[in-house]
């Protein structure tokens, strides 16, 4: 059931945009593109749909699911409603890696690979700084803040050394945008995100057990250290694969899991898959607004923050009860 919403939005979004493509034309263009190898026709409508709109919408779906599922999983794992990709340094680790690759390494190293390496480096640094007290909520948040700050500084260093042309592209990318998605980027990112999200959905009930705390999970028969590392690696992988293409898109990983829990309760068997569906839908919707509400395009990272934060505050005030 939950898969219907993002798919419906996906189909509707294919028509949307500055270049309007009538709904009746969409399917013929798609089928011709699929069945005639090597490009087929090159009408403006087909160009817009195949080269620009389709990769963009696919990226919105996958990145939204990636960020929301990572956030939901990390919240359960660390038993902390305030933890998400940001608070563990993953986002800025990935951003630094991708920036490094974009500015200095050119096309030699895929941005996704660099983003993943530094995302994992960031989590490892967070866990190292937290040390033996890593299971404590405050310690891990504090370590996350420190490591994030370090990677933000390193990111500034990359900006400082980038030539003006690269700098402009870099700053625009950092604000978060789905518009630069190419099929080449997606060919790397989408399978990685798909793999990570699928694995985290597979672990959904395990997250219920892990969310009870390390000692209890251990007495229930779980190899806590191994499973913790697994979840962290998967969250870093999906976030890095998304961030490498989209730049930093914040709040999805925090807001979506909370909204889902408000609706269906805390059972991760529901929360994780629904976060995927709802995260995908939300980012797609946000992107629809970003590219069609105004004459110019707003970077989606700014939009998710500006719209997402007040939305969350209203829900927080209105619900008034504990939904965790």
């Amino acid at each position: 059931m939950a898969i219907v919403l993002p798919l419906l939005l996906f189909v509707l979004s294919l028509n949307l945009g500055t270049y309007r493509i009538p709904p009746k034309d969409v399917l013929p263009i798609l089928t011709r593109a699929v069945f005639s190898a090597g490009g087929g026709e090159s009408s403006p409508a087909a160009d817009v749909l195949i080269r620009i709109r389709l990769p963009r919408l696919l990226l919105a779906l996958f990145a939204g699911a990636a960020l929301a599922v990572s956030g939901a999983s990390l919240q359960a794992l660390f038993r902390n409603p305030l933890v998400f990709e940001f608070s563990l340094g993953i986002s800025y680790g990935a951003a630094f890696g991708a920036a490094l690759s974009l500015v200095f390494l050119g096309a030699k190293v895929p941005a996704q690979a660099a983003a993943f390496v530094f995302a994992v480096a960031a989590v490892l640094a967070v866990l190292f700084v937290a040390g033996r007290a890593a299971s404590q909520v405050v310690t891990i948040l504090l370590s996350g803040v420190i490591v994030s700050a370090l990677f933000q500084a390193l990111l500034s260093l990359v900006e400082f050394f980038a030539n003006p042309y690269a700098l402009q592209a870099l700053i625009f990318w950092l604000m978060g945008s789905l518009g630069q998605a190419t099929w080449t980027d997606l060919a790397i990112s989408l399978p990685l995100i798909g793999l990570g999200v699928a694995a985290l959905i597979g672990l959904r009930w395990r997250l219920n057990v892990l969310s009870l705390g390390e000692d209890e999970a251990r007495t229930l028969g779980i190899d806590v250290r191994r499973e913790k590392v697994l979840v962290i690696i998967l969250a870093a992988l999906t976030t890095a694969a998304a961030t490498a293409v989209t730049g930093v898109i914040s709040w999805i990983g925090l807001i979506v899991p909370h909204l889902v829990r408000m609706a269906v309760g805390p059972d991760n068997r529901k929360v994780i898959p629904l976060s995927a569906a709802f995260g995908a839908s939300l980012l797609l919707l946000a992107d629809d607004i970003a590219r069609s509400a105004f004459a110019f395009e707003i970077p989606i990272g700014i939009l998710t923050s500006v719209v997402g934060i007040p939305f969350f505050i209203v829900l927080l005030k209105r619900s008034g009860k504990v939904w965790l």
Binding site: A76, S211, T219, G265, P266, D267, W323, L324
Partner: peptide
């Protein structure tokens, strides 16, 4: 099997 003393949980499972 181990029954802990007074655990504090974050999530309010059924």
């Amino acid at each position: 099997g181990y029954v802990p003393q007074e655990p504090t949980y974050m999530f309010n499972y059924a």
